[in-house]
Simulated scan of single mutants.
Amino acid sequence: MRHHAGPLLGQDDPAPFEILNANGKGHSLFVCDHASREIPQSLGTLGLPDEERKRHIGWDIGARKVTEILVDRFDCPAVLGGYSRLVIDCNRQLWDPTGMPEIADQTVVPGNKNVSPTEHMKRIREIFLPYHWAIEEQIANFHAHKIVPALIAIHSFTPVFQDFERPWELGILWDQDDRIPVPLLARLREQNPDLTIGDNEPYSGRQLADYTIDHHGEAGGLPCVSIEIRQDLIDTDEGCDKWAKILGDAFVDILADPNLYKIRRD
C-alpha cells in the first residue's frame, strides 16, 4: 500500500470522535469505541472489499444505535469513536498488535501490512489520542460541576467465535469496581430470567483489551462498566430498541442512586 507524506485525515474526512447530547443533565458518560466503520480517504479501503469492512472486524454492529437510545433515555452525553477499529482500535493499549491488526478474524488487512512507524504515529496522533482526549474533556466537564460521572462503555460481540456458539445475549465486563456490574447483573437476571447473562463473558474486564474503561474509569476511581451485546440481536433498529430497553430498565435504579457518584479510592 502506498503511504503519503501529508496528514492522515483530510478536510473531507469525519472527525476522530463525535459528541452526543453534550449538555445532557444525567450523571453518566456513555462511550462507544467501535461506533464507526469509516476509513480515512488517504488509506483507501485498507485493501478490503466493502462486505469485509461491514463485518464485525470493522466496527461493533448495533452498538452505536443502542448507545444513542440509552443517551436519549438517561439524558447523558456520549463520546463515539469516529473510525473503524481496523484503522486503529481505540480500546487497545498502543503496544497491543490487535490495535492495528494485520489479520482480523482470519481476514488479511492489506493496508495494515508493513506500516511504517511514522504512519502508525499518524493514526495514534490523529485518531486515537483525540478520541481519548474527548472522553477526558467530558469527564473534566462533570468534575467542573462537582459531579463524579459513571462511565458506561457499549460494545457488541459475534454470535460465533472460532466455531464456538456463544450462549450469552449480554455480557457485563468489569474488573475491580463492582458498584455498577454486580447490581446490574442481578437486575438483568431478575428481570429477564430466560436470558443467559455473562459475568465477564464472552470477554473479561480483567484482560488488557479493555483500555477505555481501564484508563478513564478504573484509573480515575469512577463507577464504570463495559456492556457487550450479541450482534445478531441488534443488527436491526427493532433489535436495538428491544435490547436498549432491556439494558435501560436494568440501569434505572442503579443510575438513580446518588451514592453511586463518588470517587473510589481503594
Rank of each mutant, 00 (worst) to 15 (best):
R2I: 11
G6H: 09
P7I: 10
L8Y: 08
Q11L: 09
A15V: 06
P16E: 08
L20V: 02
N21L: 13
N23L: 07
F30G: 00
C32P: 07
D33R: 05
H34E: 13
S36W: 13
E38M: 03
I39H: 08
Q41F: 11
Q41C: 09
G62P: 09
K65V: 12
E68S: 04
I69H: 04
D72W: 11
D72Y: 08
C76W: 05
C76I: 12
G82I: 10
D89A: 11
L94W: 07
L94I: 08
P97L: 12
T98W: 04
T98F: 04
I103E: 13
D105W: 09
D105E: 15
P110W: 09
N114I: 02
P117N: 10
E119I: 10
I124F: 09
F128C: 12
P130M: 05
H132F: 10
I135S: 08
E136V: 01
I139Q: 09
F142V: 06
H145V: 09
H145F: 03
V148H: 13
A150P: 02
H155W: 08
T158M: 07
T158I: 03
T158S: 13
V160P: 14
F161W: 05
F161R: 03
D163R: 07
W168V: 00
W168A: 00
E169Q: 09
G171N: 03
W174T: 01
V182M: 08
P183W: 13
R187G: 09
L188F: 07
L188H: 11
D194T: 15
L195G: 05
L195K: 05
N200K: 05
A209D: 15
Y211F: 14
D214E: 03
D214S: 12
H215I: 06
L222E: 15
C224S: 15
V225E: 06
R230S: 01
G239F: 10
D249N: 14
A250P: 02
A250M: 01
V252L: 06
D253R: 14
N259D: 14
Y261C: 03
